[in-house]
């Protein structure tokens, strides 16, 4: 295979991973928009999605489209409860307290689910609902898994777009994101919008969890940590709080990661992502699409 074909092939693989990151990054960015909080537990919702899907497929043999719907519902409920139980009481507390709480929620989910009585800390093979097939497209190969990921991501993004730009809830969410006080003065129920944001973000993370597990079929209760952090970095790269920024950021991070593994060494994969983070924070903290923010 010639070099161009190889690069293209890795590009496709990168987009596959990036699509998942994009789905997770959306949740980070939306929650940051309304709460100014890095929801550390978001990566664990992604993990939860993978496990719910695992049980639905392995234990109940439910058809795939239902798996998506039920998993999204389950994640939505989890996201909703986390916000109501852990974050809401801290609405007026210092930012760091909220952040520490988020870290606490994340640890709790991981270690609670890793108990032997529950999911155990071990890796579990994820049952793919179908066999992997590759389609040779002259220069590169694309698998049915990749096609599924692209299609589902595309549908999710399209629905999200409709939700955010075409419904009152979405408009209200953007208003809160832009200026909470003014939004409250205009009669928008802030609590409702925050819940709404968590529900939407968690559902997307759930979808991400299923897709990721189909692509890399080994799941584990700690699987959400690194994709979670990387997706957050993607959100920062795109400009935190900016919806399309999260998508572009996710794709870039996914492609970078795959390229580093392919052309350098998978050892440095995570390192490079963090170097990107430092680069962004240093040179353009507001991200690719963000506007400059002034202090005071």
């Amino acid at each position: 295979m010639d070099i161009l074909g190889y690069v293209l092939q890795q590009g496709i693989n990168g987009l596959q991973l990036g699509a998942v990151y994009a789905l997770i990054a959306l949740g980070y960015t939306m929650v940051y928009g309304v709460l100014r909080l890095i929801n550390f537990a978001h990566g664990d919702i992604f993990m939860l999605g993978a496990f719910v899907a695992y049980f639905l497929i392995a234990k109940f043999g439910i058809p795939i489209y239902l798996v998506f719907i039920i998993t999204m519902l389950a994640c939505a409920i989890a996201g909703y409860l986390i916000e109501k139980i852990a974050y809401k009481p801290l609405r007026d507390a210092p930012k760091i307290s909220l952040l520490i709480t988020a870290v606490g929620v994340s640890l709790f989910l991981e270690y609670f689910l890793s108990l032997n009585a529950i999911f155990t800390p071990n890796y579990i093979a994820f049952p793919r609902p179908f066999d992997v097939k590759g389609y040779d497209l002259a220069v590169f190969t694309i698998t049915n898994v990749q096609v599924l990921i692209f299609i589902i991501t595309f549908i999710s993004l399209f629905l999200l777009y409709l939700l955010i730009y075409r419904t009152n809830y979405g408009r209200a969410m953007r208003a809160v994101s832009h200026d909470k006080e003014t939004a409250a003065l205009m009669g928008i129920g802030i609590d409702g919008i925050i819940s709404f944001t968590f529900i939407v973000g968690a559902s997307l993370a759930g979808v991400g969890g299923i897709l990721y597990s189909i692509a890399y079929p080994q799941i584990n209760v700690f699987m959400g940590i690194m994709p979670g952090i990387k997706s957050f970095i993607a959100a920062v790269l795109g400009g935190i709080g900016i919806i399309h920024g999260a998508v572009i950021g996710g794709l870039i991070i996914g492609i970078c990661e795959v390229f580093v593994s392919a052309f350098l060494s998978s050892t440095f994969r995570d390192g490079v992502i963090f170097i990107i983070l430092f680069g962004v924070l240093l040179f353009k903290p507001s991200g690719i699409f963000g506007k400059r923010i002034e202090k005071v």
Binding site: I100, T101, S106, F108, Y111, L115, N116
Partner: peptide, 25 residues
């Protein structure tokens, strides 16, 4: 040993409770 695994289940709960109870430390 088995119960010991509970440690990192309980600690985060304590941490969250502490933050809610005393957000300023």
């Amino acid at each position: 040993a088995q119960v010991l695994d509970m440690r990192w289940v309980v600690i985060p709960i304590l941490l969250i409770a502490l933050m809610i109870w005393r957000p300023y430390g």
